[in-house]
Computed example of a mutant assay.
Amino acid sequence: MSFRPVIAVTLAATLAGCGLNSVPTAEEAAKARWADVQNEYQRRADLIPNLVNTVKGFAAQEERVLTEVTNARARATSVQVDAEDLSDPAKVEQFEQAQNALSGSLGRLLVAVEAYPQLTSNQNFLALQNELATTENQIGIARRDYNAAVQAYNTRIRTFPDAIGARIFYGAEPMTPFKATTPGAETAPTVNFENK
């Protein structure tokens, strides 16, 4: 009786349980979710010139705020992180800081335009503002989905038996999840409707 078929079947079963398929599957899922994050940030960057031009027509004296938004958009779109950089926390943090700076600039722009009743009732402005709000929500969803995929991947490459294949065959490194970088982001804001 030959032991070769038994050894081949045992070896195949052992290798199948070592993450040969599941590790790259989890890695590709995380990279796909990263692409979703980038897509939503690109959507926001594409909307900003339209918003800025609409505001310019009504609020020429707010040039400083408009310039700040335009510059923040340029910085945010210049910082690129591709799927291969996801295991480098410094690159992911630099990307997130640029995106957070853009979010802050947009917030200041929306506060500044409240002084212009004609602008805030303009249909084009309202549509753009709604698109930006929708995009911000989609960014949050994409980041949450990315973090879930990173968690699944990082867990897979660190737990038995997939950790064996992850280290031996792929040299897998943990990916970096997004985290709140805005000071105080972990604390809910206080809403107060009382007159002072």
Score class of each variant (00 low, 15 high):
residue 72 A to G: 03
residue 65 V to R: 05
residue 127 A to N: 11
residue 23 V to E: 09
residue 124 N to L: 12
residue 28 E to W: 02
residue 86 L to D: 00
residue 67 T to V: 02
residue 154 N to A: 01
residue 118 Q to W: 04
residue 70 T to V: 15
residue 39 N to S: 14
residue 177 P to Y: 04
residue 164 I to K: 07
residue 92 V to K: 15
residue 80 Q to H: 14
residue 196 K to I: 00
residue 15 L to V: 09
residue 81 V to F: 01
residue 41 Y to W: 14
residue 178 F to H: 08
residue 140 G to D: 04
residue 186 E to I: 12
residue 193 F to T: 05
residue 77 T to W: 10
residue 95 F to S: 07
residue 176 T to P: 01
residue 87 S to N: 14
residue 46 D to N: 15
residue 31 K to C: 03
residue 144 R to F: 11
residue 114 E to S: 03
residue 5 P to D: 05
residue 56 K to C: 04
residue 186 E to R: 14
residue 21 N to V: 10
residue 107 G to A: 12
residue 122 N to A: 08
residue 62 E to G: 03
residue 154 N to K: 04
residue 67 T to M: 03
residue 104 G to K: 03
residue 189 P to Q: 02
residue 133 A to G: 13
residue 155 T to V: 06
residue 57 G to D: 10
residue 3 F to V: 10
residue 16 A to M: 12
residue 179 K to G: 12
residue 32 A to K: 06
residue 114 E to N: 07
residue 195 N to G: 08
residue 9 V to L: 15
residue 193 F to Q: 02
residue 170 Y to D: 00
residue 15 L to P: 03
residue 155 T to N: 11
residue 134 T to S: 09
residue 157 I to K: 03
residue 77 T to N: 11
residue 120 T to W: 03
residue 9 V to E: 12
residue 27 E to Q: 13
residue 132 L to P: 00
residue 120 T to Q: 06
residue 165 G to Q: 06
residue 170 Y to V: 02
residue 127 A to M: 11
residue 68 E to L: 14
residue 40 E to N: 12
residue 109 L to F: 06
residue 95 F to R: 12
residue 33 R to F: 06
residue 34 W to A: 10
residue 26 A to I: 02
residue 171 G to E: 12
residue 42 Q to C: 01
residue 142 A to I: 05
